[in-house]
Write a protein that binds this DNA or RNA. Sequence first.
DNA 1: GGGTGACTGTATCGGTCCGATATATATCAG
DNA 2: CTGATATATATCGGACCGATACAGTCACCC
Lengths: 196, 196
Amino acid sequence: MDVRTLCLGALMGGEASGYEIRKMFEDGTYSHFQMASLGSIYPALTRLTQDGMVTFVEKEQENRPDKKVYQLTSEGRRSFLRGLLQTRPGEDRYRSDILFMLTFAEELPVELTEALLDEMEARQEIALAQIDPDRKRDDTSCGIYGREENGDLKPGCKFVSGLGEAMYRATLDFIRKNKTALIDDLRARRNNHKSR
Amino acid sequence: MDVRTLCLGALMGGEASGYEIRKMFEDGTYSHFQMASLGSIYPALTRLTQDGMVTFVEKEQENRPDKKVYQLTSEGRRSFLRGLLQTRPGEDRYRSDILFMLTFAEELPVELTEALLDEMEARQEIALAQIDPDRKRDDTSCGIYGREENGDLKPGCKFVSGLGEAMYRATLDFIRKNKTALIDDLRARRNNHKSR
DNA sequence: GGGTGACTGTATCGGTCCGATATATATCAG
DNA sequence: CTGATATATATCGGACCGATACAGTCACCC
C-alpha cells in the first residue's frame, strides 16, 4: 500500500494539508496500523495533483504559515475505491525492536531487560490511551474520516479501533502478568552461572 | 534497527547462510516482529565481513548450490551486545493494509468486506500456528537462537513468543466475535440508503 | 519424455520510503 | 530572551523492499 493510496484514503475524510495528513498517521486515525512520513507525503500529494486525483487551495492563516489544503477530486475518489477493489492487501506486519532485543535477554544486564519491559509497557499504555475511550468531537481541526453526522464512529472504524484496543489490552496484560517471572528467571540463572 | 544489526542477532544462534537468515525473518524465530529481505541481507553480510564482524566458509553441498556459511567473530558478538546497550529501541509499529481498507467498509461492497475479514482471520490463524505449540527439535537445520542444551526455550524467547501468541489470540478472538455484527450492520445500512 | 512448479542458493538493481535537515513564523514557559 | 514546542512546506541521502536474474535439484503429472 503506497503512500499515494494512503493519502487518498486520508482525504476521504475531507480536506487536509500535508501536515495534517501526517498527523493522522502519527497521532490520529491511522496511527495504529499505518505509517507515512512527510518526506513521502509531500511528493505523493504533488504527483496526485499532477494526475488530477486531488486539488489544492492555498490558504493564508493568521499567525501561521500558509497552508495548502488538499481535497479529493471525484476522479480521485473513484480511483481510490476502484484501487481498493483490485488491491491484494499486503501481509500484516508487526515490527518491534524491543521484542527483538528481549530475545537476547540472557546475554544482557538484567537492568536493561527490566528497563525494556517497562518501556514497552509504558508505550503500550500510551497507545491504548490514544485509542479514545470517548473523545467524540474535541478536535475541531481537519475532517477525520469515520464519523457520522451525529458524531458516532462508522462501523468500519469502530471495528478497526476496537481491534486495536483488544490488541493493546492483550499485550499489556501479558507484559504485566509475565514481567516479574521473566526477571526472576533471569536473576536465578545469573546466580547459577556465578556459583558454577 | 538496521539490517546489519538484525543479521548479527540472527547469527547469535550459530552459523547460517544468507538464505537461512532470511528464513528466520520469513518463517522462523523473528518472523513475527522483524523483517529483512534478501536484497538487504546479502549486502549487509558483505559489509559485516569487511568490518570483521563475521567470517564465512564456502561449503559445497551435494545436489544443492554452494553455500556461504557465515559465523560471528568474537568482535562481532561483542559489538552486537554493546550495540544493544546503547540503542534506543525504535517504536513498535504495526502495519496492516487490511485494517486500512476496513476503515472504508461503508464505501465498499459488503462482499469485499467479508472477504477481507476472512482473509485476516485466516492469516492470523496461520501466524498463530507458526508460533510452535511444541515443535521442539524437528528442524535439523540451522542453529536457531533461543534453545537450551536440553531443547527448552530460553526465558527471553519464551517471553517473546508467548507475547506473540497472546496478541494473535486476542486478534482472532476479536475478529470472530465482531465479524458478523459488522457485516449485519453494513447490510442494514445499505438497505436504509436504498429505501431513502 | 518433458513441462511445470516448488525449493535451495547467491546476487543485483530500480524505485520507494524514512529520517534528518533547512526554512520560516508564532506561542509559551522559565 | 532563550529555548522548547507547534505549525507548515520542502528536499535529499541513504536504507530497504520487491522483483528479477541465474543456476541447479526434485517431485509431479500428463
